[in-house]
Design a protein around this nucleic acid. Structure first.
Lengths: 130, 130
DNA sequence: TATCAACCTACCTTGTCAATAGGTAAATGA
DNA sequence: TCATTTACCTATTGACAAGGTAGGTTGATA
């Protein structure tokens, strides 16, 4: 089950793509339109700006806007940044210690394939598809 | 992230397929081989026998065995029964109340497609593939 | 009839989810 | 210069699920 973090992030990005006319949009507007707590969004978005998916400007007249063309932003990028883990098993996660069962594990190659199928699908979709 | 319930269930099924010579195998043997708590497996397996994936026999000489040929048991069947939810979002789960945002939701068709991709992959694999 | 094994139910501990709350830093307009 | 706006940072909280443990009951066999 994808968590609200990832789902909200995706909705925000789509909202920015639709309502973005070049200028910066305060997150308060997006939160109102989407019916999502502003405070909650505020702790989800920094990771997206730090990784170059959106540009952020403080202060009056500031807000967010997409850093790239919607067709250049993959859904997979958004979810991998915001979702804690997309990998199906712990041993395939980012900084995971090697599993001791690894040598005789008969399921690892299956889970790797699963992971690839999911990520390929998510990377085949961009914000422009919405 | 797939939970241990689903992953253990899959490993048990593969174990039964490999060590099954036609007679019933006590779950204690499987638990020992796989290094999984017997008590935990005991609350995972009933759902598999109730849904006809394995046969169970009580008492001395009893245990479990696959109810069908390994090539006739899809990984998707095992995981859908043991995993609480495979659907990516709540509104696509089994007995879920309709989401009020549904009419104007722009992501629902995307999540449906995601769900189909995952389930098709899981149903393309059987126990015989391990 | 003793033993084995599936099955049922309750409980417990730990951790994550989904927020809420309060404050700080930066940028702008008046 | 100062008030306002907006992004960003850091707890804290309540609810709930994950991942077991524990004990007992039922069914089948030797």
């Amino acid at each position: 089950m994808i968590s609200t973090r990832g789902r909200y992030a995706l909705r925000v990005m789509i909202d920015l793509a639709k309502n973005g006319s070049g200028d910066f949009i305060p997150m308060k507007d997006v939160a109102d339109r989407q019916g999502i707590s502003l405070k909650y969004l505020e702790q989800i978005l920094p990771v997206l700006s730090k990784n170059g998916l959106v540009e952020a400007v403080h202060g009056k007249g500031g807000g967010y806007k997409l850093a790239k063309d919607p067709s250049d932003i993959k859904v997979g990028e958004v979810l991998r940044l915001t979702e804690k883990e997309l990998a199906p098993v712990a041993c395939l996660a980012e900084g995971s210690a090697a599993c001791e069962r690894m040598p005789k594990c008969v399921t690892i190659s299956f889970w790797k394939e699963y992971n690839e199928v999911v990520n390929e699908f998510l990377d085949s979709k961009t914000l422009a598809d919405f």
